[in-house]
Write a protein that binds this DNA or RNA. Structure first.
Length: 865
RNA sequence: GGGCGAUUAGCUCAGGGGGAGAGCGCUUCCCUGACACGGAAGAGGUCGUAGGUUCAAAUCCUACAUCGCCCACCA
């Protein structure tokens, strides 16, 4: 037994206070070690690796969403008896982290170059120790049941070894190569970027047409003309056939450039002639390759013109108008600037306009890897949920460009390549000695952050070593992540992991949407609608935050949240708290063995509903239908258990100690025990407190997941439905009659639901007697064969009542007319299926009956006046 | 330019060939001994537009419109 105090139920406050429960509860879980996976347990395993958040990051709602779902999945599996591992960790986040530390240095008036590489990297590690990983504490606040003993970091020793291992293998397989290519260059971060690190945004540009003698070309980046080395036309373009091979004078320079014929040119676009700048445009680079053109670099790594002449030293954006002005001065601007909307690449880290730039970089040759990654999903080895998200994956994997993996940064895995004095290139394996000697230098660059994340599911479990964890927990069961990183991460894990091992890294990929604000807008700093989940946890509790997110989580669909939603969730948690309090105060207890066999219809009904909901929830969980899991449990809990069963239970419980009361206490105990278990994965904190109080158990975390809860009982469900209709009818009648709420009205009940007289009285504020015949002078309600007569000798506002009834009558008549028209319009009736005809007729008859009833009431009112 | 998705109650979203659903919001009444973070009763929608298939379409098909997202080497 642990010495953490057990909650003292009789003094439980009427309001649930998350702050007093959550932190101690999490601490207790850690003490108990309930989240520790155990490879020796002999149980089947269930594994999820966390998408590693950036060390620099703090918990945002997107994390909170994914974490809630992952936590719910692994908690449920644990309860089902699995050896559940949810593995935590963080990503070193190359550019992001380096930027943070560089900004810090800038405050001291220093740059990383002032420190030098070693000192700078040491400084980043120091930053990481001091300020990094704030998010880990926030994950605990959310209740994440992570196995902290297995926490990993992409830069720790094991993972770095994994990086060097795969690098070596890929290199030896000639799947990693170094080449001079056009890459995306961020002139602010001063590094290469991969294609997906570039965000394309439509921008207003200006297209200017420039005369190159006999040909006119158009461009939005006039400054690049300084680096033109050809003009291209389409090979079949008769207009220019005579010019192919000719040399043109390149304006503003003393160079001459050839006209080449290349199929890439669209003869229908513009003039059909294209300036070719191989050093600053990917297409032009390829044209240059095909025609053996020189590449002339005219911008440096900061985007400053290097071409000798009047423009040298100008920033690219200053050079652009300057070049146009100079051309205009020479009368070479054929068509003045035309507004032109085109897509411009921006650095996804800092927003700077990306400059295509020719440079020497390392690449992964992806085609064979991507083929395999695509095939694995096509073969069903990995399944996407929802399946439509696989299309997004295929889109990318099936048409992927080689991956530029070198970054001109210092923070990251340094490229494990050494260059020798005689032009040698050596890639030592992780266990090999590095080349020694003053003449040998290691590549200056580091690897793209995603290079190490691509190994995450395997490397965190020990790969390249065949560890017990790797053996047992790999491949992982499911990957939960947003659709926004299918390309960044999911696809690349598939690429690398299927390369290093025969199996796929995860059996399923459950795709979540993005969290949006209450109006469905993306959360962004500029829109000012960003919500910090920590604030909401402070105000409403972690469970309420989790419930809000899970409740909106339809597979692959965005999740809108707002303060009102979370208040609703808080209300639900509070309702659960109070309903459970009621059960406890009234002596609810979990039966030792089986439930009594003598049960009331209400007992049988709620147990039947419990069985149905349990089974439904299981199905929904298997399909990652979190929103529907929540919906199902919410309605069972509130609408059925709390609003009906608990209310009904008050009747037998009045008679404390009676067999009926005892029996009800056991059914209540069973229902709350089961409900709390079913809710636990999503509402871990409040259910822990309540479940321990209800059952006296140690912790619900390791309690078993309900398998056979209750028993289906159709007869009880039907009878209960009739009773509910009866109660609803009486209540409606009371409201319609303007009867004072709470005023007990004498009533007589006739029919086969006579046994419910006491319950009807309790739920509809009546004093009910069962009888064989109805006495006279009563207002009579008839509901499915049962009649209730109410003695309305009290005062009723008859005028208001007549108005209300009249309005209702009109509405029902309208409905009847529509149904009638439907009947009349259906010439098909003769050949229509029997049930359809019957169903429509029944509706018409029901409407007739309703009209008759309303007319009766109106008449009764008239008579009474 | 290509692809995907959406269009259902005031808002945010489920549903999916035969009686329009949820949460929140709204109206009226009620602080009844679990809970006002509550209870009861209500109002509110010709399910984007136009065609088509069908006995029957919010649901399937086609086109269109609007919005959103993703991809793209649109000079």
């Amino acid at each position: 037994m642990l010495d953490t105090p057990v909650l003292d139920i009789p003094v439980l406050d009427t309001k649930y206070d998350p702050t007093s429960v959550e932190a101690p509860t999490y601490e207790r879980w850690l003490e108990q070690g309930v989240f520790r996976a155990d490879p020796g347990s002999g149980r089947p395993s269930f594994t999820i690796v966390i998408p590693p958040p950036n060390v620099t990051g703090s918990l945002h709602l997107g994390h909170a969403l994914g974490h809630t779902l992952m936590d719910a999945l692994s908690r449920r599996k644990r309860m089902q008896g699995y050896d559940a591992l949810w593995l935590p960790g963080m990503d070193h986040a190359g550019i992001a982290t380096q930027n943070v530390v560089e900004r810090e240095l800038a405050k001291e008036g220093k740059s990383r170059h002032d420190l030098g590489r070693e000192e700078f990297v040491a400084r980043v590690w120091q930053w990481k120790e001091e300020y990094g990983g704030k998010i880990l504490g926030q994950m605990r606040r959310l209740g994440d049941g992570l196995d902290w003993d297995r926490e990993r970091f992409t830069m720790d020793e094991g993972l770095s070894r994994a990086v060097r291992t795969i690098f070596k293998r890929l290199y030896d397989d000639q799947l990693i190569y170094r080449a001079e290519r056009i890459i995306n260059w961020c002139p602010r971060c001063m590094t290469a970027l991969s294609d997906i690190e570039v965000e394309h945004r439509d921008s207003d540009g200006e297209l200017v047409s420039i005369s190159y003698g006999p040909l006119t070309v158009a461009t939005t980046r006039a400054e690049t003309m300084l680096g033109d080395t050809a003009v291209a036309v389409h090979p079949d373009d008769e207009r220019y056939a005579h010019l192919v091979g000719a040399m043109l004078d390149l304006p503003l320079t003393d160079r001459q450039i050839p006209v080449v014929a290349d199929a890439h040119v669209d003869p229908a676009f513009g003039t059909g002639a294209v300036k070719v700048t191989p050093a600053h445009d990917p297409n032009d680079f390829e044209i240059g390759q095909r025609h053996d053109l020189p590449s002339i670099t005219v911008l440096d790594e900061r985007g400053i013109v290097t071409a000798p002449g009047p423009f040298q030293g100008l920033d690219r954006f200053e050079a652009r108008p300057a070049v146009v002005d100079a051309l205009r001065a020479e009368g070479l601007i054929v068509d003045e600037k035309r507004p032109y909307v085109h897509s411009v690449g921006h650095c996804s880290r800092c927003g700077t306009v990306v400059e295509p730039r020719l440079s020497l970089q390392w690449f992964v040759a992806v085609s064979s890897l991507a083929k395999r990654a695509g095939d694995a999903v096509r073969a069903g080895e990995t399944e996407f949920v929802p399946p439509s998200m696989a299309d997004r994956y295929f889109d990318w994997v099936d048409d992927m460009h080689d991956w530029c993996i070198s970054r001109q940064l210092w923070w990251g895995h340094r490229i494990p390549v050494w260059y020798g004095p005689n032009g040698e290139t050596v890639v030592p394996g992780p266990d090999d000695d590095e080349p020694a000697g003053a003449d040998w230098v290691q590549d200056e660059d580091v690897l793209d952050t995603w290079f190490s994340s691509a190994l995450w599911p395997a490397s965190t479990l020990g790969w390249p070593d065949e560890t017990a964890d790797l053996e047992r927990y790999y491949p992982t069961s499911v990957l939960v992540t947003g659709y926004d990183i299918i390309f960044f991460w999911v696809a690349r894990m598939m690429l690398f992991c299927t390369y290093i091992r025969p199996e796929v890294p995860f059996r399923q990929v459950a795709i979540t949407g993005l969290v949006r604000d209450g109006r469905g807008r993306k959360m962004s700093k500029s829109a000012g609608n960003v919500v910090d989940p920590l604030d909401w946890m402070d105000a409403y509790g972690a469970d309420a935050v989790r419930w809000t997110l899970a409740r909106g989580a339809n597979p692959g669909v965005d999740v809108p949240v707002s303060e009102e939603w979370i208040q609703g969730s808080r209300n639900f948690v509070n309702k659960l708290w109070n309903a459970t309090r009621f059960a406890l105060i009234n002596g609810a207890r979990v039966p030792d063995g089986a439930l009594p066999t003598e049960l009331s219809v209400a007992d049988r009904w709620i147990l039947s509903r419990l069985a149905a909901v349990r089974s439904e929830v299981d199905d929904l969980y298997e399909n990652y239908e979190f929103a529907k899991v929540c919906d199902s449990l919410f309605h069972f809990a509130w609408d059925e258990l709390f609003d009906w069963y608990v209310e009904l239970a008050k009747v037998p419980m009045r008679d404390a100690g009676s067999p009926a009361a005892e029996r009800t206490q056991l059914v209540l105990g069973h229902c709350f025990d089961t409900l709390l278990r079913l809710l636990h994965p999503l509402l871990p904190f409040v259910t822990e407190a309540l479940w321990r109080a209800v059952t006296g158990g140690e912790t619900v975390v390791t309690a078993s997941w309900p398998r056979e809860a209750g028993r289906a009982d159709g007869a009880a469900e039907i009878e209960m439905r009739r009773f509910q209709e009866l109660v609803a009818e009486v209540r409606r009648f009371r409201t319609q009659q303007g009867l004072q709420p709470g005023r007990k009205v004498p009533a007589t009940l006739v029919g086969d639901l006579a046994a419910w007289a006491a319950h009807l009285g309790a739920l509809a504020d009546l004093t009910v007697e069962a009888a064989d015949e109805l006495p006279g002078n009563l207002a009579v309600l008839t509901v499915s064969g049962v009649r209730v007569g109410l003695d309305l000798s009290g005062a009723v506002d008859r005028e208001a009542e007549k108005a209300r009834l009249g309005k209702q009558l009109v509405a029902v008549e309208k409905e009847r007319d529509q149904t009638g028209r439907k009947l009349a319009n259906q010439g098909f009736l003769a050949k229509a299926p029997e049930q359809v005809v019957t169903s429509i007729r029944q509706r018409a008859e029901a409407a007739e009956a309703e009209i008759a009833r309303l007319q009766d009431q109106l008449r009764a009112l008239d008579a009474a006046t």
